[in-house]
Design a protein around this nucleic acid. Structure first.
Lengths: 360, 360
DNA sequence: TTGTACGCGTTATCAA
DNA sequence: TTGATAACGCGTACAA
């Protein structure tokens, strides 16, 4: 029945044309529902469509892009896909793109700058029309700007602030988050609060700290320096768990009293909880713990981790929409660079009111 | 300095040719280090390379593929990227591909069959030379076979057994895993063991159960039906946490005694732990809990979750290598369909020896 | 050593 | 209503 294809490759437009008996142009017009298809006989359309379906014709995206001079593709370059932080971001990006004719191409740099660069090149080679960078941790040493800039590809970073380099960035309002975190602890009656700060290199960390200090100043709460520890620079996601555990353990060993602990992020908080448990301190009975991010684990932990939620789905969607906008409107008019999204306090079970009595 | 480009699009081979003063073919030959480049003057090569770099030339991957008739691309279709299970798989795939000239294109079906199909079409349209399906949960209703088959694209499923449909699959040896899990509990002295079984539709679940029953038969351990609950079919990853919590709570309420609990997977185990905690039962003091998978959170939980580890990195790599092999060698000689990888018992802190004394 | 011409699968333009 | 033809950017015989 079906006309034999010339060789072992894919079904091509020419195959459909030959089989249906019409010219390639007509077939193309019909299959793409181009304006001109209004003038094509219904019977013709029908036959062409059926033939295409029967043959299992899938238009060659590359040939199409070449001809249209548009790839309809946006690249998503993730610095570390194993970071629990980024899955929701990816979802958000996907969702925003699903409505559009754009297709995301996700690549994972696996924490390696060289791979990051290589993939960046490949994405440019694939003529992505826009780029979303999912940045976590420090990928500051990378300078994507130069290459991208030369190719005028709209680019947005999500999860990290690169406005300093003139790159549009979508981040949670870290300062507000830090403020909300300590405020929550304070309202619960806690005054002796321990802090596990994030590494210095992390801008996000510093912003959070600014919020914390602002609140402390407002209510005249003194932050005891002896209750503050700082994580060293870190290489990958998991090490912040280890860091939280290690430094909390040291803190406990000093014997210094505290009824609550504010961690720089959820992973750190989870590490802190482990350390507290090992020291025989129950959460939240003996010590409240609050994190930051609301990674998937936070809800799964027992007790559920109170945290400052980053609206990652929204952040992802927004980032995608921003590059879409940039693609659509060449309104280079110095569009807003920094996009700050509001965090949200999520009270679960790892924090509670300070008990009036003294335990232990 | 730099020659003006014709328009606002990308730098093209012709641009490099024009600027460097050589013909397009020479440039192509040099830049690709084609065999003929052996005969090109060193100075010429040097000049061409420099010009390309200065101009920021990135060969158009699509034009190249069109000409070479190879996309050098393999598609990775994930059914649910938010499943903690799959990140390591993706890593494994990436790693295996990194060595090769093949580029992965990752897409996330977001749990939706329609999106799955749509993305499948797009991947075919992009002429991926191979396909890795990352299957989690039931995506049984989907029939990718027909479309793929028509296009002779090598395909491998990882994380789900689709050998029934003749698709090469990479899965952990679930039966061995189930066997190892109950054996561990048994060796720790536990006899009154509760089970939270996975949904019936899940083949993986059934295989695990087979292993459990086999061990029980070998040591003549009677499995008390009143200590066995089964999760209903589930829609997404998180609901297995809820299921574990709900059914464990019901189990506890019956008042039936048990000193250990074997969950169908880690998420379920985490839910069980939550339920036990709410009932005032400590893990592992009052009840040991073992899971299956070793999702990232298993190690982060306090207590660390004892579990049966799936070697996901290896599974991902193997899956990728299998499609690579299929692409390279058209050895259609009924290659082995089922690839079983050995699981590994990972003893952490959620299981311990049964205490001889009776605690409440 | 280098240049010319053609093909890859589609789309757009212009004729018929 | 439909069909022919010229790009699109690149790789590669083949010729020079």
């Amino acid at each position: 029945m079906v006309a034999r294809r010339t060789n072992s490759t894919h079904v091509t437009l020419a195959d459909v044309a030959r089989t249906s008996g019409f010219s390639a142009s007509t077939v193309s017009i019909v299959l793409n529902e181009a304006p001109l298809s209004r003038y094509v006989a219904a019977a013709t359309k029908e036959l062409i469509r059926r033939t295409a379906a029967e043959l299992g014709y899938h238009p060659d995206a590359m040939a199409r892009s070449l001809s249209r001079r548009r790839s309809q593709t946006i690249g998503v370059l993730v610095y570390d896909i194993s970071d629990p932080f980024c899955m929701a971001l990816l979802r958000g990006i996907e969702r925003a793109l699903y409505e559009t004719p754009f297709l995301p191409i996700i690549m994972d740099a696996d924490n390696r700058p060289d791979q990051f660069e290589r993939y960046l090149d490949m994405l440019i080679g694939r003529r992505v029309e826009g780029l979303v960078l999912v940045a976590n941790w420090i990928f500051a040493e990378i300078d994507p700007l130069s290459k991208i800039d030369k190719n005028h590809i709209p680019i947005t970073v999500v999860g990290g602030d690169l406005t300093g380099r003139g790159i549009q960035s979508v981040v949670v309002d870290n300062e507000a988050g830090g403020y909300a975190a300590i405020e929550h602890l304070y309202r619960m009656g806690h005054r002796k609060i321990a802090f596990v700060r994030g590494p210095e290199e992390l801008v996000d960390s510093s912003r959070r700290w600014v919020g914390i200090e602002r609140f402390a100043a407002e209510v005249k709460l003194r932050l005891d320096p002896r209750l503050i520890v700082q994580l060293p620079g870190l290489k990958d996601a998991i090490s912040s768990f280890d860091g939280g555990m290690k430094f909390t353990a040291e803190l406990v060993e000093t014997g210094r009293e505290f009824t609550a602990l504010l961690a720089s992020d959820d992973l750190t908080a989870l590490g802190a909880i482990r350390a507290l448990a090992m020291a025989g301190r129950r959460v939240p009975e003996d010590c409240s713990v609050i994190g930051f991010d609301d990674i998937p684990h936070a809800a799964l932990n027992t007790p559920g981790l109170t945290t400052i939620r980053q609206p990652m789905l929204d952040m992802g969607s927004l980032a995608a929409k921003l590059v879409l906008d940039a693609i659509a409107g060449p309104a280079e008019s110095e569009a807003k660079l920094l996009h700050l999204l509001a965090p949200e306090l999520l009270v679960r079970d790892s924090t509670r009111k300070k008990t009036t009595g003294l335990r232990k």
